[in-house]
Design a protein around this nucleic acid. Structure first.
Length: 564
DNA sequence: AACCGATGATACC
DNA sequence: TGGTATCCCTCGGT
């Protein structure tokens, strides 16, 4: 039966929109509605669905009058504004301009505690509030003291001033065709940045010669999860991918060989397809370590490209091992983390299932776990429970973290998981960078800053943002020697310098923003005839980008006492 | 401007 | 233990 015929026979429908004045007692109405809907016949139910499809923001309620049994009786439909999160009336969640209003019925989006929203969250207002102080327990044994004495001289007592790269110096907009998943600075060539993406492509970019950028597309079939340079040849990089292979790529030629393929028989269904996530290189032992989505660790010999030892279950069977990190000082120590909510410390000399030296419990998935870059004696983890965890000494009591720092870095399946990264230049091993999930209203623009946190206190040292970065920046890396921050935000890559330095660079050749692929074509089309938009005419293009934005803060900012 | 879709962790059965 | 509904400040496309 065609719908028109049905509608013809249907009683008159009166649509009633509620005004801004909200009815406070809607619960009794709702109950009534439900009862009545239950009594409705099929036709009425279908009609309701049709109207709902036409407007998803406003919930449709069908109120049938007492005389509804007669087919031609009038029906009143009221379109009441409901919260898109909890579907209740009386409030609305979502953006009001550039400010996001949380649903009050849900736990706080930042700290996950019920009873308040992000707006009133104590962790947002006082940035140190979420820090749980380190319990001062003394459970060292004599061996610990020996180790600690060896390591302690590396850590100066006085913290130097932090240098924050807070100005975008250059960028490639839409560098990748899918979102960026990882970044890696070249270990010796200062201006070379490597980037991996969700498609499995590998970018090589000389950000001082902004236009010298390459994307190698034939290395992996899907997500490039982690990469690391070969210690004996810094023109070569290893990468672990969800296609189940480890690649070894020459950066000059892009020629890649496969060290390992966990899916030699191709796709046999999701229950058997193995993906590689965690990857690190242990140069002392000459092995590449990788871990898969079923909880297993694999070791490959660098020289022979052959597998070393047995495959070892290091996390809960069937769970993803997302991170591996070798201790920079003690080559025998390995740190792993994964979806079983644990980070684990292992002794490389005795790698067996269940033989971890320590299991660090988390409340949610652990996105990353890193030893500190200089002494290797601290541990920093990023967990999906919106908390950074710090263990001040691996030789101390590891039963509970020294500090938990509440920070917005929620999991979202459409985003690369956030990972807090150490500043390798900070001798005090306390400066850490991590992107922020929740936005802040900056002069009418909702921007997601990148946070610098002092993990020894939990303080937010700086939040940096740029009006050209409107997307969340989950991937960040600090340069091993220079005061440079690299950011992967969606498909774009940004290079930041400290303000003073940026200005010197920019005086010479202005801020360089390069557009790639469709972004470039689109912009050229939009402003066709105005100029030829050659690659060198970056300033004009940049101007056009900012012109085409609705709301725009005046310049990129770095505030020292922002909210988190 | 309003959809659409991709597709990860998790709670619950 | 496995299948599925739900989560719901994404992003880029049409």
């Amino acid at each position: 039966m065609p719908p028109q015929t049905r509608r013809m026979a249907f009683p008159n429908v009166v649509i009633e929109r509620d005004t801004d004045s909200e009815e406070s007692s809607s619960s009794s109405d709702e109950e009534q509605d439900v009862e009545e809907e239950d009594n409705n016949d099929d036709l009425e139910a279908e009609e309701e669905e049709e109207v709902e499809n036409g407007d998803t923001v406003e919930e449709v309620k069908v109120e049938v009058s007492a005389a509804k049994k007669r087919e031609k009786a009038p029906i009143t439909i009221s379109l009441k504004k409901v919260c898109k999160v909890c579907k209740r009336t009386g409030h609305e969640a979502g953006f009001k301009g550039a400010t996001y209003i949380d649903c009050p019925m849900k736990p706080c989006f930042l700290c996950k505690t019920p009873g308040h929203t992000t707006m009133t969250c104590p962790h947002r207002i006082a940035t140190e509030y979420g820090v749980i102080p380190a319990p001062r327990r003394h459970t060292h044994n004599s061996l610990d003291y020996v180790f600690e004495r060896q390591l302690r001289p590396n850590i100066p007592a006085i913290k130097p001033a932090f240098v924050i790269p807070d100005q975008v110096n250059c960028a490639v907009i839409r560098y990748h065709s899918r979102r960026v998943t990882c970044l890696e600075f070249h270990p010796t060539r200062n201006n070379i940045l490597l980037s991996g993406d969700k498609k499995g492509q590998l970018g090589v970019w000389d950000y001082c010669k902004v236009h010298e950028k390459i994307v190698y597309g034939n290395i992996h079939g899907c997500i490039l999860n982690n990469m690391k340079f070969k210690p004996t040849n810094d023109g070569t990089v290893y990468a672990a991918s969800s296609d189940g292979t480890i690649s070894c790529t020459d950066l000059e030629t892009g020629i890649s060989s496969s060290l390992m393929n966990l899916n030699p028989n191709g796709w046999q269904g999701p229950s058997s397809w193995r993906m590689l996530y965690g990857l690190d290189v242990n140069s002392e032992k000459g092995v590449v370590l990788v871990a898969d989505n079923f909880g297993y660790l694999y070791l490959m010999d660098i020289r022979s490209n052959s597998k070393v030892g047995e495959t070892i279950l290091i996390h809960k069977k069937g769970s993803k091992v997302v991170g591996l990190h070798c201790n920079p000082v003690q080559p025998d120590l390995l740190l792993s983390c994964g979806n079983d909510h644990f980070a684990r410390i292992w002794d490389m000399r005795r790698l067996e299932s269940g033989s971890s030296l320590c299991s660090l419990a988390h409340r949610r998935v652990v996105n990353s776990a890193y030893f500190s870059p200089r002494s290797g004696s601290k541990i920093l983890t990023t967990s999906q429970d919106n908390r950074l965890r710090v263990w001040d000494s691996i030789f101390g009591n590891l039963g509970s973290p020294s500090r938990e720092i509440v920070h917005s870095h929620d999991f979202n399946r459409h985003l690369t998981p956030f990972r807090a990264e150490w500043d390798p230049k900070d001798p005090s091993e306390s400066l850490v960078v991590i992107g922020r999930y929740i936005s802040e209203n900056y002069n009418g623009a909702a921007l997601h800053p990148i946070d610098f946190i002092d993990i020894s206190t939990g303080k937010l040292v700086a939040e940096v943002m740029d009006p050209n970065i409107t997307t969340i920046s989950p991937v960040n890396k600090l340069h091993p020697r220079d005061d440079v921050l690299a950011t992967g935000s969606s498909r774009s890559i940004f290079i930041w310098n400290p303000k003073e330095k940026s200005e010197i660079v920019q005086q010479k050749d202005e801020k360089k923003i390069v557009l790639c692929g469709k972004a470039e074509k689109k912009l050229n089309k939009k402003f066709d005839g105005e100029s030829d938009d050659s690659d060198d005419d970056i300033r004009k293009i940049k101007g056009k980008i900012t012109q085409s934005r609705k709301a725009e803060p005046k310049s990129s900012r770095c505030s020292l006492k922002g909210k988190r």
